[in-house]
Structures are given as C-alpha cells and as structure tokens.
Design a protein around this nucleic acid. Structure first.
Length: 508
RNA sequence: CGGGCUGUGGCUCAGCUUGGUAGAGCGCCUGGUUCGGGACCAGGAGGCCGUGGGUUCAAAUCCCACCAGCCCGACCA
C-alpha cells in the first residue's frame, strides 16, 4: 500500500484481500458476528432489518402468486428422512442429529444427556420429507391440488467451511413446497418461482443474475431439474442467489403423496421446492460494497434516510433538532415503493464526523445534514452512498421532501446499473480451450489477483468434461440458460456439437 | 475432514527467536477546549496474553493436546 492512498473506512481494501475485506465490512456495519458455536452467527439488528425487508417483499410476491405460509417441525424423524435415497445421500453428511433428551448432573458435577430417544431426530437441513408426510394426508383428489405452501424457517447443515452469511451451519430461509396435478403444471411452477426470484433480486436488491438450469452434477439431491439464479460479485466469482426445483414424482413416491385423478386412477403428485436464504445478505455485501463499507439498495435498507443534526452551538440546538424532527415526520408521510419511507434522526451526542462515518459504513442510502447555516436558508445538505463520500449537495428542505422518493429510486437504479456493467465487463464469450484456461488462470500465482469472471462457452453436455474443468481450474457450469438466444456450435473442449453456450465461473 | 497460517483489553497489532507474571494506535469513560465533523488537551477504566496439561525457581514467550478463526482442498444455499 502506498501512502498517497486516501484513507478508507475498511482495511484491507477489496483489491488487497477480498475475503478479509468482507469480514471487516460486516463487522464495521454491525450486521453480524460469529458466535461461540462453530459456524453459527449472531445477526445484529442492522443485518436482521435487511432480512426482514427481504422477507416482507418476497412474502408479498409469494402471496400474489397464490402461495400461503405455514410452519412445519424443526425435527424430522430419522425414518422419514431415509425415504428418498438420493436425497438422503445428498444430505446425510451434513445432518445434525438429536439423540437424547433431559440433562442430568453426573458424579463430576457435569451436565450430561440422560435419556436416549427411541428414534433419533434429524434437525431439518430442508423439509421435503416432513412436509411430504403432511401432504400425503392432505392430498386425496385432484380437487385438492395444487398445494402452494411456503415456510419461513431456520435450517441446519453441518458445513465444513462456514463463512458469515455465505455458508453458516444454521441459516434462515424460505422454502416453498408445492404439489401439482400434472408434470407440466409443476414444471411451470418451478419456472414461475425462478422468474419471481430473478425479479426480486433485480428490483429490490439491485442484483443482476443469469438464470437457467443446473447441470446434472450440480442438481439438488432427489430433483429432476434444478433451476437457479447466479450473480457475479466483485471478486468475479459466481454466487447462487436462489434455486427452484422440479422434483418430478420422486418425493411424492417417497412420501406417499397420491391423489385420485380425473380418470379415477391413483396417481403420485408432481412436486416442486424452492428457496432463498440469508446468503442473499452476503451477496449484497459483495455485490455493492466499497472500501468504505457496505452499500445498501434503498429498497432493502432498514433505514433509507438518516438525518444528522449539526448542532454545534447550544443556542441553535433546539431549533435544529426541531427542524430535523419535522423533516423526518414529513418524509415518513411519503412512500417509496409500497411502504412509507424509513427515516431516522441520529440525535446521539457524539462527534459529527464519527457519526457520519458510522452511517457510511452501514451503507445507509442517503445522509442528510442540517446545521445553523442550512436552517437560515431553509436548506439541507445531502450525501448519497452511491456517490463519492465527499460529494455533497445543498438543496432546499421542501425540494428534498418532494424529491426524496426519486432520489432513492435513482440510487436503486444506479446500483443495478453499476452491477450490470461490472458483470458485463467481466463476462466473455470464449471460443477456445486455450482462451478458457487463460481466462481462469491468474497471472500472479503467488498472490493471485482478482481475475476471471463468467465465461460463455459451448459444451458437449458431458459430465467428464465438467469434471476435468473443475479439477483443473475449480471452474464449474453455473447455469445452462433456458432462453433461445444462443446459437448451436462446437464444444470448445472436445469439438463435439453443442446446442448452446453455458455459463462457467468459479463459485462460492 | 486433510494441508497451511493465526489466536495478546471492543478493533488492528507489537512483544515470543535470546523465559523474569504486559505494550502501542484506534475505541471507551470523566473534565475541558473545539465544532459542517472521523478534532485537540488532561486524567482514567479495561487483559486469568484461546483452553487444558507439561518443562522451569519463574511461561504470553519453550513442549504436548484440544478449541476457534482465516486461506487452500473435498462438500454445499
């Protein structure tokens, strides 16, 4: 690092050490912290506020498409879990299992599990099996279909390598589980949700994604088809932001979800499942954050506008506070999207500079300062988090109140545009194996620079090629796009025919 | 779960090679001076040096085990 660099709020910078920057940005924004339980985290109010906004908005979209919420147990009897072979195999290694109840104090004064359960309980890593058991009872006739249910819950997957938000042992998510009368209906449902997810992350999180189908090797255990959306974050790696599965009749068969069809015959239901997780928060951080901390899109920021009174002199203090409160009230009467503006007046008696920087690090979209000089002119000073920290603009209070929603919209759009440009700048159409390997090989092997991105390349559809590339470069197929925009061509690895280009990248 | 690195006050880290029971900067508290700003001055609080064992008259420092974090690998949202 050279000394002419301007000081950044987060050390190290993104270009110095991206993973460490990520950790520090989370800490500085007070989003979350590691807990004493390995792989688990405490989500602090600012981080949880983001999650609550995601929940609220996603939930409204689910409702609008006819889905309803319900809640199923955390514990899954081991016997339920064992019903779908592929599914068990896929999750067995990461299951946490409850084997005892009751604690007793032993001779050494230590607490000890006392009473073994007759049947061990698996803590849900996902709920297909236990929800299936209910569905088997609920579904009798084609008239009971479709079943369109979502649940908001926590799940546990005993991961080898946890990272805050991106991969924690316990995480929060929503899981939708539906049953349909026909295959095409269930496939349409999976696709409907994929599109809904894509819309959600674009419109609310300002995250552009590629969507499509997963290759066989990346498919959800037990699924017939796995659809996913994949975003590119600032270290140019791909991150899966949501998945939607068409499960065929596999789980219906395993759980006994049967109905009498229109011909009077017994038939297994066609099911889907789909989910989004707190990983989205990690995606947001890596997508929009800069060297001064995280940057929140207005639509999911717990506070969209923070008002900072510049109350330096005792005599003007009361008047300034009143002006700030009055501004807050007027702003809260305005709406942004479907809800009132979230506005906070930070009246803490601490240094103005410190206060300002705290909000910068938290990524609040708009900071407003009102001081004595502004008040004389009935004006305020506005700073936008998507602009350089020093960029400040003065405008009249009335003007700002009128313009606030548009300003937030403009920030929202700007973030999406910026992210889209970044992704485009790092997405390459690649025509040869050599170019492909060059693209994904860092120039500096000792301390690899940020490199690579998304490669759009033809592939013959074989698992062996995928395997080879993964071994050589740690690059995988993120998604096989569903749209028809790609021309057929030749696999760049084998020369064999390829129906279309697929998206390759290193991933989280 | 394998390999590497790391674990010292809230944060970032020095001290460890050459053992003698702790330091800096930032943050925190108090008072004052400041005040469109991550300010300054003075005083102050806060550490069983990751945990447990061992070697030693003496361990943050040496040895062993364990735990946790990060990076890499296998797995995954």
């Amino acid at each position: 690092m050279n000394t002419t660099d301007t000081k950044t709020a987060i050390t190290p910078r993104r270009d110095q050490d991206f993973p460490e920057w990520y950790q520090q940005a989370i800490r500085a924004a007070e989003l979350a912290e590691p807990s004493d339980v390995r792989g688990c985290m405490v989500i602090r109010p600012w981080g949880y506020g983001i999650w609550e906004n995601m929940q609220r908005q996603l939930d409204a979209m689910f409702r609008a498409t006819g889905h309803r919420n319900a809640y199923f147990p955390l514990f899954i009897p081991l016997s339920y879990f064992a019903k779908e072979a592929e599914h068990v195999e896929g999750f067995a290694k990461e299951c946490a299992v409850v084997t005892h109840t009751r604690l007793e104090v032993d001779a050494d004064g230590k607490m000890k599990p006392a009473s073994p359960l007759t049947e061990p309980l698996v803590i849900r890593p996902t709920s297909e099996t236990i929800i299936g058991a209910s569905y088997a009872r609920w579904v009798q006739s084609y008239r009971d279909l479709p079943v369109l249910i979502n649940q908001w819950a926590n799940v546990v997957r005993w991961e080898m390598r946890p990272r805050l938000f991106l991969r924690t042992t316990e995480f929060l998510w929503q899981e939708g589980h539906t049953v349909h009368e026909t295959e095409s209906e269930a496939r349409a449902e999976a696709k409907l949700i994929l599109d809904l997810y894509q819309r959600f992350v674009r419109d609310h999180l300002a995250v552009p994604v590629f969507s499509g189908e997963k290759s066989e090797s990346e498919r959800f255990p037990g699924a017939v088809q796995t659809l996913a959306i994949e975003a590119m974050v600032q270290d140019r790696r791909a991150i899966q932001a949501g998945t939607s599965h068409f499960l065929g009749q596999n789980f219906a068969r395993a759980s006994g979800i049967q109905f009498q069809n229109r011909e009077g015959k017994q038939e297994f239901g066609w099911t889907t499942s789909w989910g989004m997780t707190t990983r989205l928060i990690g995606t947001l951080i890596m997508m929009h954050g800069d060297d001064d901390g995280i940057v929140l899109p207005p639509r999911i920021a717990p506070t969209q506008i923070v008002i900072l009174p510049v109350a330096t002199r005792e005599e003007s203090r009361t008047r300034i506070m009143e002006a700030c409160d009055s501004l807050a009230l007027q702003l809260r009467a305005k709406r942004f999207g479907d809800v009132p503006l979230e506005v906070e007046v930070d009246r803490r008696d601490i240094g103005g500079g410190v206060k300002n920087w705290e909000w910068i690090k938290k990524g609040v979209p708009v900071r407003i300062e009102i001081g004595p000089r502004d008040l004389e002119k009935n004006a305020l000073v506005i700073s936008r988090r998507d602009q350089p920290i020093k960029a400040k603009e003065s405008m009249s209070i009335q003007e700002f109140i009128a313009a606030a929603p548009e300003i937030l919209t403009s920030i929202q759009q700007n973030l999406l545009e910026r992210a889209t440009q970044f992704r485009e700048a790092n997405t390459r159409v690649i025509e040869s194996k050599k170019d492909f390997y060059d693209f994904f090989t860092p120039k500096n092997l000792g301390k690899p620079e940020l490199h690579g991105g998304f490669a759009l390349a033809h592939w013959n559809g074989s698992r062996e090629v995928e395997e080879q590339i993964k071994n050589d470069l740690k690059v995988t197929i993120r998604v096989v796009p569903l749209d028809d925009s790609s021309e057929p061509g030749k696999c760049i690895f084998t020369g064999e025919p390829s129906a279309r280009r697929v998206v390759w990248a290193k991933s989280y």
